[in-house]
Nucleic acid binder design. Sequence first.
RNA 1: CGAGCCGAUCGUGCGGCCGCGCGGCGGAAACGCCGUGAGGAAAGUCCGAGCACCGCAGAGCAGGACGCCGGAUAACGUCCGGUGGAGGCGACUCCAAGGAAAGUGCAACAGAAACAGACCGCAGAGAAAUCUGUAAGGAUGGAAAGGGGAGGUAAGAGCUCACCGCCGCCGCGGUAACGCGGCGGGCUGUGUAAACCCCGUCCGGUGCAAGAUUGGGUAUAUGCCGCAUGGGCUGCUCGCCCGGCGUAUGCCGUGAACAUCGCUUGAGCGCAUCGGCGACGAUGCGUCGAGAUAGAUGGCCGCACACGACAGAACUCGGCUUACAGAUCGGACUCGGAUA
RNA 2: GCUCCGCUAGCGCAACGGAUAGAGCAUUCGCCUUCGGAGCGAAGGGUUGGGGGUUCGAGUCCCUCGCGGAGCA
Length: 106
Amino acid sequence: MYTRLKKNSDFQKLFARGKKIFSPALIVLYMPAKETRLGLCVSKKHGKSVKRNRIKRLLRESFRKVSDQIKGNYAFVVIPKQAEEYTFAAFERSFLTVLKKEGLLR
RNA sequence: CGAGCCGAUCGUGCGGCCGCGCGGCGGAAACGCCGUGAGGAAAGUCCGAGCACCGCAGAGCAGGACGCCGGAUAACGUCCGGUGGAGGCGACUCCAAGGAAAGUGCAACAGAAACAGACCGCAGAGAAAUCUGUAAGGAUGGAAAGGGGAGGUAAGAGCUCACCGCCGCCGCGGUAACGCGGCGGGCUGUGUAAACCCCGUCCGGUGCAAGAUUGGGUAUAUGCCGCAUGGGCUGCUCGCCCGGCGUAUGCCGUGAACAUCGCUUGAGCGCAUCGGCGACGAUGCGUCGAGAUAGAUGGCCGCACACGACAGAACUCGGCUUACAGAUCGGACUCGGAUA
RNA sequence: GCUCCGCUAGCGCAACGGAUAGAGCAUUCGCCUUCGGAGCGAAGGGUUGGGGGUUCGAGUCCCUCGCGGAGCA
């Protein structure tokens, strides 16, 4: 379970003080928080509205799947890298490698 | 059978598990159950409206849009039916299609000459230079002053005559644009108005981030309660003032916010009947089909096939324009071929 | 959500509706120099963002699409 990150001030906090991790498909920023939170950052560079919505759905779904394995509470901001194709499997794999690298998995 | 034309429609479907937005029900809550959930273009923002706020006595100027005629419509630059023109053998398609004798501008180069004329030529006169007449032919150009014939003439010319065209008048048909016919005028006025412009019609501005609700201070008006043991000014004392609550309006201020309303039932959609060539209208019956706000449709699996195009609502409608794999239906639509 | 502006040679820019769209820098070649730079001379390079229309004629006027940029709240 997680709540969504919406306020611009929260995003600014993450960009200023969050830890920035790179993986093949994603850029992830995170910092400790009261509860598990997720913010997405998908811009017009990624495509038209249909494509952008698709990316956000895939990111939300893949995060939902891995969120119960996270120990502790953190706020995340996720930026997908520009690519020709965006797939669910790639996003899920990216999340797992990032979390494993940072030792956030339970 | 082949090639076309016109008008419409659909644009992955079914099932299982997990998940998302909204609404309803149950529950103290956690949560559970049920229902529902993107498009024909949701797009571009090119027009027209509704709605909201601001402005406004009336009228005019400026500016902009539109522009054959009649109709449809809430309105339109849209649609329908006609007229004229252009294209196609045809079904049919396309057209910003008012005014150039209201005025101004522009028309490069070529050409003798582009509101204006004679280069070559033709004819006459003359020994010749040259002068006069002429505008048929040549040459230039997008455009050369009606067209191509016959007569006529020194050569020619609407100079004359029929036909066509143009202009004017009359008659008939049509609501009208216009068409048809007759008579008259020999006939002079090039093109461009998506150049300025003229004429006619229409147009106030800004846009849902419009705008409204909820809190505080203050001024005014008013209603009710109250006359000090209370309240305000200041950190406290002294001192000074008198009020409190509600309502309305103005001003200040711009806090609270994962706030609320606007926010989805509307010039709505479906079917039938009637009126109309049609756009469309009338009547009856049925029906409710998203409402988010870092912005809801996804993941995994199975089955089917044509193997899934363009593409995601953001106040709401009516159009236009643009993008789009493919599939289907209708036509007493067309052309060509074959057979009977 | 709304409102504007721009698109011309490799680059940044010119061009009353009128000939074969220009000049600068850059590029290539030649001259000069021992060599290079500078200088001098010459050459190449354009679907005027795409398509359609108006006009005798369009980079210019009109419509439409695309791309890029700016502004308002």
